[in-house]
Design a protein around this nucleic acid. Structure first.
Lengths: 150, 150
DNA sequence: ATGAGTGCAAAGTATTTGCACGTAC
DNA sequence: GTACGTGCAAATACTTTGCACTCAT
């Protein structure tokens, strides 16, 4: 374990989640939580697959990664945060407050930002339409400071 | 032509755009503008392809639709507004002010909304990070009024 | 006349699925 | 022991591309 997220608690919560769905608590599923927590940054599935297959300790197949990613999304541990070039960029969201992203179209850099005010306005919009929000995604594409200067 | 957008002016502008890029002004490219304007709602490419192939007057192949959609996006006549289930939903944006979307995860309904305040806050965020925004996409997924009641 | 555009079929990506085998319970 | 989970390879879905023919200039 390289970082600060307490995966033990998380794995316990995921175990409960799986039990409620009458699904089995497997080593592979719990391992994947450790792996993603270890990876500790935004990821595309292909990237995660390659990174995991380069490890010798824990191994999870591509199909199981896809299957488990879906479960973890439903569970709420990860989110699809950016859709770009027909790829999905995921993020491990446990222990982090909600934020959105600035994405540089030139170099691909991802900048996270938090705006309570934007969140609040979104809630107001939803209320105005009697819409019950579940999740949202705000992507601002543009040029980062460095790429503007080039 | 079924609706209010003046495609003649739009086609003229697109012609200029193509000239500047040293690309040819073809019947197919201009036809596609009419077709999308005619379609007059959010669309997925597959949907547009089927609708176009059901017409007898103008026909454009799937490959050319993909190729021209990219050009029209660069030109600014259409936008990728929603990414859902690994599909892209486009929108014809000519003559319309910028807006974002509430998407019902149950029935798929799309509700458009405008919030000047959210736009303004986004600009402030960008400024704070010296980020030059080009376009953005805000998708709020949740349950529409009808689906909440069910 | 010439090179870019188009349509078709084939190839590429990303993701899902069927099936035989393994594992949780 | 039984049913669900996993890994593999095959299938699917969406998008792009190579090529021969066509059309804009």
């Amino acid at each position: 374990m390289l970082m600060g997220v307490n995966t033990e608690e998380l794995k316990k919560a995921f175990t409960e989640f799986l039990k409620k769905k009458n699904m089995k608590i497997t080593k592979t599923r719990l391992d994947l939580i450790d792996l993603i927590a270890d990876y500790n940054k935004h990821f595309e599935i292909e990237e995660l697959v390659n990174w995991i297959s380069s490890r010798t300790d824990k191994r999870v197949s591509r199909s199981t990664i896809y299957r488990t990613i879906k479960l973890l999304e439903e569970f709420g541990a990860i989110k699809e945060v950016i859709k770009k070039d027909n790829k999905t960029i995921y993020e491990f969201v446990v222990g982090r407050s909600h934020h959105d992203h600035l994405i540089c179209v030139e170099c691909g850099k991802i900048i996270e930002f938090v705006s309570e005010d934007i969140e609040k306005l979104q809630d107001e919009v939803c209320e105005a339409y009697s819409f019950k929000p579940i999740h949202h995604r705000l992507e601002i594409f543009g040029l980062c400071k460095d790429c503007q200067e080039k």
